[in-house]
């Protein structure tokens, strides 16, 4: 597989970026996220979190067994500051 394949479309994180992060100490999905910004873009990981978990599970089977799973945080949909402030 080519290492230039993009995994996280929003932040343009490639397989190579994940590899680099892994080899410099990021060994769970959450650590990979912090290091590479994968799953942290505009879609909030709706597209790539499965891929990051899958990739991590392949690299480090222990990482996918409930240790530091990726979380979901509100707002889970884009809103404007106006909407947050309760404006029409």
């Amino acid at each position: 597989m080519s290492n230039s394949i993009i995994v996280c479309r929003c932040e343009e994180v490639t397989v190579e970026n994940l590899e680099d992060a892994y080899h410099t100490g990021a060994i769970t999905s959450r650590q990979i996220k912090m290091k590479t910004r994968a799953t942290m873009g505009a879609c909030q990981g709706r597209v790539c979190r499965n891929l990051v978990d899958l990739w991590m599970g392949n690299k480090n089977p222990l990482a996918s067994k409930g240790v530091e799973q990726l979380s979901y945080r509100p707002p889970v949909r884009p809103i404007t500051f106006g909407e947050l402030a309760g404006e029409e």
Binding site: S2, S4, I5, I6, V7, R9, E12, V47, C48, N50, L51
Partner: peptide
């Protein structure tokens, strides 16, 4: 998703 070369 199905990531591959050129999928963006």
């Amino acid at each position: 998703p199905v990531p591959l070369e050129g999928w963006t």
